[in-house]
Write a protein that binds this DNA or RNA. Structure first.
Lengths: 241, 241
DNA sequence: CGCGAAGTTGAAAGTTTTCAACGAGGGTGG
DNA sequence: CCACCCTCGTTGAAAACTTTCAACTTCGCG
């Protein structure tokens, strides 16, 4: 982890990409800019560990991160995959609780880091900001809801199809003939996130590729026929060619 | 669904059991009491459906409820099982979004129902209340986190053990020699919540019973040896007798 | 008393995991 | 600049697990 010293203007431009602060008053932005730090993390480095005191809020502005938890039997379960812009563990930070899980950067990343005390006082002064925070939490709750629902899918093919469709929907690219999805983490982490083994994910990709629904090119997945994926969700027996 | 007309004093006593409002000022409690409705639902009745406009907040004060979503293939997935006291879909209500899932009462239940507009203005007047709301959302986020993590458990036995331990921990009863857990819904719904078939849950209970870890008595589960369950979580090979 | 929903149990079928081996890619050090 | 190593990803075959299908029992309720 390295602390960068960017020009205030650059810092300000990063700041405006963070959804929570995008509509702040100039005064608040000024305060934030003066106290925020721009941090650089290597791939494989940890942002925080479960149990750490949450005294700073990190906003991911570039790169990628994952939140994972270590289960009693020693294995790890990925709870969340983040692409920028995203807030990391904002709920724990605002509540002043220790982090409930670990944060690992899956690529070289940049984060904006804000001291908790300052955020608290800003929220207390500005009801608008409180509502936006509640909105953030709602959004995350909704994501988790979707994730749990998708774990209900019977087999691996369905879960993967559901995941791919979810990502293309969230991506800003045209979903026309051949949308492209770049996986936000190595495939083994995607597999863990989806609740299957890396081998199963590999086989599932191969199967979808053979069916003509996608084309796999390293971490990039080309969606050739979204309709095929959608059919898999509708009926788990899409009579593959 | 039937609207009851309780005495204000009774209504007030229900109100104080709702965590979000337990520390409200007398004035706020007065306002809430005058606008709140006490509703009675039958087992099998719906509180709301996905897509409905969330214009009231329901607090479960007795009985039981489940939140479930219908997947594209027509099957249902239970996302949450509620025992009183609990708030139902508070995030959607405060954000003014339509409900993202369905609410079904698993037993005859009583809820306190508050009009959204009133809650919003109360939160805006009272920063303390806003923080408690954020705390509520944090709590729910945390629950979902645990749930997703528990879906990471390899086999059904481990998931069930994890679930049982989670419930005893949340229950106020002594966890001494033989704690007792009453399932908050029929076993088929518990199974769905855990992401397994009812048959598998039945077999798993039988297995745990044979191992001497629990005793199943209808919807009541006696935890005979919590340590056995904990061992299952630590190592998925607890050399069963 | 009898019906229907819920739960249990058995055996076969289907899926995923596990174990193992191999190939490709990136980074490091000689 | 190349060899080496380690991680990641892929593929195969066997093992383990869950689901499915079906029959039967239990329980609650009219």
């Amino acid at each position: 982890m390295k602390t960068l010293r960017p020009k205030p203007a650059a810092l300000r431009s990063y700041l405006q990409r963070v959804p929570l602060f995008s509509q702040c008053t100039d005064e608040d932005l000024e305060t934030l800019t003066s106290a925020a730090m721009l941090l650089q993390y290597e791939r494989g480095e940890h942002g925080f560990l479960a149990g750490d005191k949450a005294c700073r809020l990190d906003a991911l502005v570039s790169g990628g991160a994952q939140i994972y938890r270590t289960l009693p039997d020693g294995t790890a379960k990925t709870l969340h995959l983040f692409s920028p812009p995203a807030l990391l563990a904002e709920a724990a930070v605002f509540m002043g609780f220790p982090y409930p899980a670990n944060c690992l950067f899956t690529e070289e990343s940049l984060t904006l880091s804000f001291p908790r005390a300052q955020l608290i006082s800003m929220v207390e002064r500005d009801p608008q900001l409180a509502w936006r925070l509640i909105g953030q939490l709602y959004g995350k709750l909704h994501e988790f809801t979707d994730m749990i629902a998708s774990h209900g899918h019977r087999n691996a093919v369905t879960r993967v199809a559901s995941y791919l469709l979810g990502v293309v929907r969230a991506a800003p690219q045209g979903d026309g003939p051949a949308a492209r999805v770049v996986l936000p983490a190595p495939k083994k982490d995607i597999a863990n996130y989806l609740g299957i083994r890396p081998e199963s994910l590999s086989r599932t990709f191969a199967q979808l590729e053979k069916a003509g629904a996608i084309r796999v090119d390293g971490q990039a997945i080309h969606i050739l026929q979204a309709s095929l994926l959608e059919n898999i969700l509708l009926d788990s027996d899409p009579e593959e060619s």
